[in-house]
């Protein structure tokens, strides 16, 4: 299984991985519309900064994923590709996955009418290479076999 590897020595804190993630998970997949016209999706990766260190952090898709263990109704599951993803239909927003995640990479989307939605990296199912990796201008994110 391929995974996004983080090269913190190369991260230049430009946030373009976040931008690309937003665009990829938007309805139109158009950068202007995604940011200015539609309801903006939440970026699944976060660029952390503590001078001079910076790095983009997103789901590690752990083998022994604690979020899957913690999920009360099986919404957090492993898909056929092997990545850890959320079933949006069944997620009730109890945030147990967030409590369990050792990397802090699951985010809360509270914009749904009834229940919240755990939002996390889905390794871009519609793409060969995840959007963040494609967008990184300095190869600080690379998509490689684990």
């Amino acid at each position: 299984m391929k995974i996004v590897k983080i090269k913190e020595d190369n991260c230049i804190f430009c946030h373009l991985c976040e931008v690309a993630c937003v665009v990829e998970h938007s309805q139109s997949k158009d950068i202007i519309k995604a940011f200015k016209r539609e309801e903006r999706p939440i970026a699944r990766c976060t660029v952390e900064f503590n001078y001079p260190i910076s790095l983009s952090v997103m789901c590690r898709h752990c083998d022994d994923a604690p979020c899957i263990e913690a999920c009360q109704n099986g919404s957090m599951h492993r898909d056929e590709r092997g990545y850890v993803v959320v079933n949006e239909e069944t997620c009730v927003g109890c945030w147990m996955c967030i409590m369990a995640c050792p990397y802090g990479v699951i985010k809360r989307d509270t914009r749904r009418e009834v229940w919240g939605l755990s939002t996390k990296c889905d390794a871009c199912p519609e793409r060969d290479i995840p959007a963040c990796v494609d967008a990184c201008p300095n190869e600080a994110l690379i998509y490689e076999e684990l």
């Binding site: 230049i12 804190f13 430009c14 946030h15 373009l16 976040e18 931008v19 202007i32 940011f35 200015k36």
Partner: peptide, 13 residues
């Protein structure tokens, strides 16, 4: 301004 999405990449760079 129409194109600017306030991603702040330029600000950091």
């Amino acid at each position: 301004d129409y194109r600017c999405i306030r991603c702040k990449a330029c600000v950091e760079q």
